[in-house]
Amino acid sequence: MIGIGIGFKWFIFVVAALVATGSSLMMVTRKNPIHSALWLIVTFFSVAILYVLLNATFIAVAQVMVYAGAIMMLVLFVIMLIHLEWGAQWKRKLSFAKLIGGVVTIMLFLQVLAGVFTYSDAGQKGVYSAQKLAQLGNARAVGTLLYGKYAFAFEIASILLLVGIVGAVLLARKRKD
């Protein structure tokens, strides 16, 4: 019975991971920005599934609500607002900049791979083990930390949001003359 459970989990992981990789590849290769944005939503959803598999339910929900929901809405709005639907189509051409970008991307990718594959659990263990989280609940654990231990950083983040709002209003406001 447990074997089937693990097999099923493995199956879901493979599907979600393949969909995430495939859709993000589709996203960067589409010519139409709207299509890219839609593929990005698919990526966000499949990554959310990966989070669920990691028992990080809170992050999964936040991912769907904030990224796939709110932020993608904004992205689509911006694309439509400045009429990018068909405007920004460039020819596929191998330029020097693209070459450099490709090399740097591959280097970074290899670096991350090296980091992941040589990962050894050398660090310290935190207090929130998988058992404790299952007992406490993810959202509760995050909430306790956010409003307890990290309250100061949370308060400063409110200033960050305020600066963002003030800045957006200031830059978007029409000139008086």
């Binding site: 950083a153 400063i156 983040a157 200033i159 960050l160 600066v163 200031l170 830059l171 000139r175």
Partner: peptide, 24 residues
């Protein structure tokens, strides 16, 4: 603490991104 350093850095940077573009 990395969390505080990062948030402080962002508050600073965001303010300055806006201030740079004030001469609209």
């Amino acid at each position: 603490h990395f969390v505080t350093i990062f948030i402080g850095l962002e508050v600073m940077s965001l303010s300055i991104y806006v201030l740079c573009g004030l001469l609209r």
